[in-house]
């Protein structure tokens, strides 16, 4: 969902002449045999493109995701919480770097991928275009956003592309820490004063629906992810993942004594699943288009950091060149 579950159809560009039917069939046979595809292996150009798009969006999301949480580091209410939050944000930077690295195995450069993020060409998860208003938002992000991320990333640990699958194994371990720490913040708030409970409920009211949107458009309307499924990049559909998330999260909210902001939410005895209300897809598409509370700010912040850091990167390069020249002399 860090990729918004948007499995856009590849534009039918002129078929790559290297993608012969024999090669495609052999590739599919490897996938069907659950073999991992490694960087040096032959792969269809569409497979490569799909992965580059999905993995780079994932990496961008980790990086942009540092901003809403970074917003609370200097104001964390205790030293212990400050330390935990700093460590979390550092983990996310690590995830970003790690996934950029895995993406580079597909023959693209991190600099080019980042340029696409900064120009607005590449997407990142819309969830990070929502603001962090109170401390409870930090708890809620850990609980719901990292929670939803895990839901999506556990199946990615079995993704057919080796480097991505291995990255996800490592990342998932840390995300589950984040999820538990977030929930712990919520527990503390819900055991606390009336003001703290109000803070917790308010944050849940604002984050619940956007976190459901993280799984992407409904299977009914979403463009075909059949190809991603066949290639075993994606293994579980958007709606199935969303349902799983709802099923585990609703009891957690109940335990906290919080009310989900959904009048239609009800447990269905027959299916054993929660039924929930209609998602506001209008909002989903608007935020995706750029019309969310923080879209502009997030991109501006990353662009400013990049621009203001240019002289530093130039200096590092110039120094490295001087050193190389000195050694050669």
């Amino acid at each position: 969902m860090y990729t918004q579950g948007l499995d856009q159809k590849q534009k039918k560009s002129a078929a790559d002449p290297a993608d012969t039917p024999e090669r495609l069939a052999a590739f599919q046979a490897r996938i069907d045999a659950e073999e991992k595809i490694e960087p040096k292996d032959w792969m269809p150009s569409g497979y490569r493109k799909t992965l580059i798009r999905q993995m780079s969006q994932h990496a961008h999301s980790e990086i942009v995701g540092m901003l809403p949480e970074g917003n609370w580091i200097t104001r964390a209410p205790t030293l212990r919480r400050k330390a935990i939050l700093l460590a979390k944000v550092q983990d996310e930077a690590g995830h970003g770097l790690y996934i950029y690295g895995a993406t580079e195995t597909l023959g693209v450069s991190r600099d080019d991928l980042v340029a696409d993020l900064l120009s607005g060409k590449a997407k990142y998860s819309s969830i990070f275009n929502y603001p962090t208003i109170t401390w409870a938002d930090i708890g809620t992000i850990g609980w719901l956003v990292d929670g939803a991320a895990i839901m999506n990333q556990i199946p990615l640990c079995r993704c057919s592309y080796g480097p991505y699958a291995r990255a996800m194994v490592r990342v998932c371990k840390e995300e589950s820490f984040h999820q538990r720490q977030g929930y712990e913040i919520m527990l503390e708030l819900c055991r606390g004063t009336a003001e703290q409970k109000r803070m917790a409920q308010d944050a849940l009211d604002r984050w619940w629906w956007p976190s459901l949107m993280m799984f992407g458009p409904s299977d009914k309307t979403s463009e075909h992810s059949a190809q991603s499924m066949a290639w075993k990049i994606k293994r579980i559909s958007n709606d199935e993942l969303r349902q799983k998330f709802v099923d585990v999260t609703v009891p957690q909210a109940e335990y906290l004594g919080l009310k989900m902001p959904d009048e239609d939410l009800v447990f269905d005895q027959k299916t054993g699943h929660y039924r929930f209300g209609e998602i506001d897809w209008q909002e989903f598409w608007e935020v995706l288009k750029g019309n969310g509370k923080c879209n502009r700010e997030r991109l501006e912040t990353r662009n400013r950091a990049h621009d203001e850091g240019r002289w530093v990167r130039q200096a590092a390069r110039a120094y490295a060149e001087k050193q190389a020249a000195r050694k050669a002399a």
Partner: peptide, 21 residues
């Protein structure tokens, strides 16, 4: 901590937040 999200390189943002920690 003020450098989080604003560093000249991701690696440096990590270093700064690591030092802050």
């Amino acid at each position: 901590s003020e450098w989080v999200g604003h560093g000249p390189e991701l690696e440096e943002e990590m270093a700064m937040s690591n030092f802050a920690l």
